[in-house]
Nucleic acid binder design. Structure first.
Length: 105
RNA sequence: UGAGUUUGUUAUACGGUCGCGGGGCCUUUAAGGCAAUGAGGAAAGUCCGAGCAGCGUAGGACAGGGUGCCUGAUAACGUCAGGUGAAGGUGACUUCAAGGAUAGUGCAACAGAAAUAAACCGCCGAAACGGCUUGGCUUUGUCUUGAGUACGGUUUUUUAACCGUCGCCCAUUUCGGUAAGGAUGGAAAGGCGAGGUAAGAGCUCACCGAUAUCACGGUAACGUGGUAUGCCAUGUAAACCCCACCUGCUGCAAGAUUGGGUUUUUAUCGUAUAAGGUUGUCCGCCUGAUAAAAACCGUGAAUAUCGCUCGAGCUUGUCGGUGACGAUAAGCCUAGAUAAAUGACCGUACACGACAGAACUCGGCUUACAGACAAACUCAAAUU
RNA sequence: GGCGCUAUAGCCAAGCGGUAAGGCCAAGGUCUGCAAAACCUUUAUGCCCCGGUUCAAAUCCGGGUGGCGCCU
């Protein structure tokens, strides 16, 4: 499923202030309804050096691409990963599916 | 075979399905299709050097900063190459910010007699003084004569005592000579041996070292040999400094294009012997500057577009050079994002995959790094 | 991405070539019937880490690590 990326500083501010939050062991997700599907990943320096941060971003982007079809509406979404020892594609995908079911998107 | 030194290459590979970035071509008018292409040796640290860009001036002097054996390479460098010297290693080889301490200034704690300077102890010579038993003076020995069984007189059993004279030794004080020795210290006035001397001293000599100078070799750093020497004296210049050379400042968040400019009013400083700017100071040079409010137009301003990837470029060959490197011929185009692109799954192989992700671009340095491979050389042992 | 500053005891910090001031805290003691206050005593094996210069380095020089700030 195609999606757009969130780029503007104002969009980020609005989502962090007014968006709803969903939680899972590996992720925090902020979302609001919007006209098109939009997504962004926020990852800080506490996750490690650039190689590690890029790796997390790629895994999350792939997981979101594969699970976004299960959503019924269209939303703006920010994904914030939590600090962990190891990162795997499977746990991210599983936790994303759980959150979508729980919040009934 | 084992141990090692140096240099270089490489950094999982191949196939399938679904995806991502910027271009190209095609269909078509907002989307789709096609075949290519898409992180590194360090992309890192930002430690140097350049390009490039800006600074209403970049000009001079000083200050400040940097570099520091020699010759070369280079666009440039604090880099590289070849050499010199020193240090380390049996060796291959490695390491070195390696100018000047005799231009001047500063610092050298503690310890030590004394710290950059010759005072003290000591050793030696001369003179004076005469000493709780009048200090002592035959030899040998006990723990060592340092120096007189000296001469004359008196007493007396006596080689013993006393008095006088001359000489000597020791001690004390004063004056002078000396730098051999004095537990320290990172460093103590070239080292060691012999001669010499009252005691000593490069005072003299041999050897070693240092400095100066001459000759020869080398483009040079420097080396080799000869001669001379009042050996006039520590370390530190990654302390100030001196000498030689280099240096304007800021950095792509630089900057440019499109778009917000025009008019009016007010205030402050100043109106040319002044004020401001010129990124620390002076000379020189340049010029009005700053702030606020109102009206019209416009509304995207970190976010658009450019800068942005064809460049001191890469690959291969030939030639010159010991080498860094240069010249030349042919071929190639090889990321360009901007909340920021390389991922997921499956299969095969093995050694089971280290450090790590471009952000204007190059040349270096430094730091991180599982391993694999190649070449040259050294040492040790064994065999032929 | 670029440019700077900084690191000293549990905390705040001075020192900037000669062997780590001071304050708070902590521990022990004196005082007290017991406390508080007051007074006295004690704590850095070395100044973020690794090398170098020096007789000697927290200090000077080079490299690394962590923290903080500025430039839109």
């Amino acid at each position: 499923m195609k999606y757009l990326r969130i780029k503007k500083q104002g969009d980020f501010q609005r989502l962090f202030q007014k968006g709803k939050r969903a939680f899972s062991p590996s992720l925090t997700m902020l979302y609001r309804p919007s006209d098109k599907m939009r997504m962004a990943i926020s990852i800080g320096k506490k996750h490690g050096k650039s190689v590690r941060r890029n790796r997390i971003k790629r895994l999350l982007r792939e997981a979101f691409r594969l699970t976004a079809d299960q959503m019924k509406g269209t939303y703006s979404v920010i994904l914030v990963p939590k600090v962990a020892e190891t990162y795997t594609f499977e746990t991210y995908q599983k936790h994303l599916q759980c959150m979508i079911k729980k919040e009934k998107l």
